[in-house]
C-alpha cells in the first residue's frame, strides 16, 4: 500500500473485518471483564463509602432503581476516609510506600542498565540465551524467590556466614526485617522488568550511529552519554514504570522481609482486612491507593508521548 494512505487503510481494513461471529468474540471477554473487574471496583467504592456496621458480611449489593440511587447517595458515609486522613499511620504508609518504591526503582535501574547494555553488546548468537537467562527467574515463583532471600538475610544466614568467613564483619548484619531487606527483595524481584524494556531499545539501536559518532570524533564516554542513553530513554521510562507501580502496592516483600517499622500501604490494606476485619477502611485504603497510582501512570504517559515512536 502506498505510504500516504497506509494508516487510513489499516483502519479501513479493520472496519471491513470478516470475522463473522464478531459479537461473540467481543462480548465474551467484555462481559467477563465487566463482571469480574469493573463491577468489583464499583462495589469497593460503595463499601468504602458505607459505614462500618452495614458493610459487614454477608454484604449484598441491592440495585432497585433510581430511588435506590438517591438513598445510596444520601447514605454515603465518609467515615472511613475521615479515619484515613485523621490517623497519621495511613498517610505515613502512603509516603513510605512511595519512597521505598522510588528508591527500589532507582537501584534497579542502576543495576539493570549495565546488564541490559552488556547483553545488547554481546555477540548476536549469545543474545537469545542471555535473554532466556534473564527471563527465567521471572517465570519461577515470585514467592519462592522472596523466600530465598529470607535464608540469605536472616541473622546467622548465608550472607552473614559468608561475610564473617571473609573476615569482613564481626557482628551479624541484622539486615532481615529492615527496609534494606525490603529494597533488596524488590530490586531482585523486579530486575527482569527493568532489564527487558531497556534491552529491547538498546538491541534495536543502530550500531552505525555509534560508528558515525566515533567517526565525528566522539569519545566512548561522549557516545554513551549523547547517543546510547537518549535513544534508550523509552526503555528506561517503561522499565521504571514497570518497577515503580507494582512496588508501591507490594505486599509479599514487605511482609516477609520487612520489619514492623517498614510501613507499606499494601501491607496496611492486608492487615485492615484480614486482622482488623474493617472492610470499609480496607476499601477506602484501596481507593486512595488507586488514586496514588494514577500519578505515575499520568507521568509515564506524559514522558512516553514525548518520545518518538
Amino acid at each position: 500500500m502506498e505510504a500516504g494512505t497506509e494508516t487510513l487503510d489499516k483502519r479501513a481494513r479493520g472496519r471491513a473485518s470478516w470475522l463473522r461471529p464478531r459479537w461473540l468474540v467481543l462480548a465474551l471477554p467484555y462481559a467477563w471483564l465487566l463482571a469480574f473487574f469493573l463491577l468489583p471496583f464499583l462495589i469497593v467504592l460503595r463499601i468504602a463509602l458505607s459505614d462500618t456496621a452495614r458493610a459487614l458480611p454477608p454484604y449484598a449489593p441491592h440495585w432497585t432503581g433510581w430511588a435506590e440511587a438517591w438513598n445510596f447517595l444520601q447514605a454515603l458515609d465518609l467515615e472511613s476516609f475521615t479515619t484515613l486522613f485523621g490517623d497519621s499511620l495511613y498517610l505515613e504508609a502512603y509516603l513510605s510506600s512511595l519512597r521505598i518504591a522510588a528508591t527500589a526503582t532507582l537501584i534497579t535501574l542502576l543495576i539493570a542498565f549495565p546488564l541490559a547494555y552488556a547483553m545488547a553488546s554481546a555477540p548476536r548468537r549469545w543474545q537469545p540465551a542471555l535473554l532466556i537467562l534473564v527471563i527465567l527467574p521471572f517465570w519461577t515463583s515470585f514467592l519462592i524467590r522472596v523466600y530465598a532471600w529470607m535464608a540469605i538475610l536472616r541473622p546467622e544466614g548465608v550472607l552473614d556466614a559468608l561475610l564473617r568467613g571473609l573476615g569482613l564483619i564481626d557482628e551479624p548484619l541484622a539486615l532481615m526485617n529492615t527496609e534494606t531487606a525490603v529494597l533488596i527483595g524488590m530490586v531482585y524481584s523486579y530486575l527482569p522488568f527493568m532489564v527487558l524494556p531497556i534491552y529491547t531499545t538498546l538491541e534495536k539501536l543502530d550500531r552505525s550511529l555509534l560508528e558515525a559518532a566515533a567517526d565525528l570524533g566522539a569519545t566512548p564516554f561522549r557516545r554513551f552519554v549523547s547517543i546510547v542513553i537518549p535513544l534508550a530513554r523509552p526503555g528506561i521510562y517503561a522499565g521504571c514504570f514497570l518497577v515503580f507501580v507494582p512496588a508501591i502496592g507490594e505486599f509479599v516483600i514487605p511482609d516477609l522481609l520487612g520489619g514492623p517499622e517498614t510501613l507499606m500501604i499494601g501491607k496496611v490494606l492486608w492487615t485492615e482486612f484480614f486482622s482488623n476485619r474493617d472492610w470499609p477502611l480496607a476499601s477506602a485504603v484501596a481507593i486512595l491507593l488507586l488514586l496514588v497510582l494514577a500519578v505515575p501512570l499520568l507521568v509515564y504517559q506524559r514522558f512516553a508521548r514525548k518520545e518518538p515512536a
Binding site: 469480574f36 473487574f37 469497593v44 484501596a286 491507593l289 488507586l290
Partner: peptide, 19 residues
C-alpha cells in the same frame, strides 16, 4: 498495573455480594 491486593479485595467483595 493494579496492585494485587486491590484486585483481590474487589473480587472478594464481589463473591461475598453474590453469596
Amino acid at each position: 498495573v493494579m496492585p494485587e491486593v486491590i484486585t483481590g479485595l474487589a473480587l472478594l467483595l464481589l463473591f461475598v455480594g453474590l453469596d
